[in-house]
């Protein structure tokens, strides 16, 4: 474990806590893409298949459980909770995320560490995580004004993978057998997708104005 990875995990956890806060405090999920939340729930379920077979550390197991439970709870809440689901922007959240699912799975069948069930699902979760934010970014551009908590949620979600890239650079130089090309390249793509969001987020923070993404 290194500081970059720990900081990345904490930012990831913070993004989920901010989202939970927004939904439970405002009893609203306006501006949140259900499709992105469904994709994230799938990412964790596909990646943590080894949750009960490979014990790495207490921290690792607890964080995996937190991510699986929180992501499924958010999807459940946006679909089933009578109050919350009323504020879901169904007509704006129209990104065809099934294409992202199919493309990620097809790529995982072609490019993976080993052609085994667990490795293919791990690669699938890595590719899917890289593109899972797209429905959310499209929804933000369509809904124009972004409320603070939603903006902070997307910001922390983007920052976490940027810290993971620093972690991979650090591990590459400090560990002999370290090579994670699949995660690294996918992580770069994932962070790059946030580039324009980070730019407009920085501008709104600098000018102390409401965050607006150009349509």
């Amino acid at each position: 474990m290194n500081i970059f990875r720990f900081a990345g995990d904490m930012m990831h956890l913070t993004s989920i806590l901010v989202l939970l806060l927004k939904i439970y405090a405002t009893k609203s999920c306006s501006g949140i893409s259900l499709k992105t939340q469904e994709l994230y729930a799938l990412v964790f379920l596909a990646r943590y298949l080894d949750l009960f077979t490979d014990f790495i550390s207490v921290y690792n197991t607890i964080m995996k459980l937190v991510f699986i439970v929180s992501s499924t709870a958010i999807v459940w809440c946006m679909k089933r909770d009578r109050v919350v689901r009323r504020s879901y922007d169904k007509q704006l959240d129209t990104f065809r995320h099934y294409f992202l699912l199919a493309a990620s799975f097809a790529l995982a069948l072609l490019v993976n560490e080993k052609f085994t069930f667990q490795e293919i699902f791990w690669a699938f979760s890595i590719y899917l995580e890289a593109v899972a934010i797209l429905p959310q970014l499209v929804l933000l551009q369509r809904s124009g004004n972004v409320d603070n908590l939603t903006g902070q949620y997307v910001f922390f979600l983007g920052a976490y993978r940027a810290f993971y890239i620093l972690n991979w650079i650090y591990r590459y130089f400090t560990e002999t057998h370290f090579s994670r090309w699949i995660a690294c390249i996918s992580g770069l793509v994932q962070t790059a997708l946030y580039a324009d969001f980070f730019y407009y987020y920085y501008i709104s923070w600098k000018n102390n104005t409401k965050l607006k993404l150009p349509a």
Binding site: H12, I56, E113, Y164, F178
Partner: peptide, 10 residues
Amino acid sequence: GLSSSLKDEL
């Protein structure tokens, strides 16, 4: 082994 070190991350 190599693959175990790869999967110690979240």
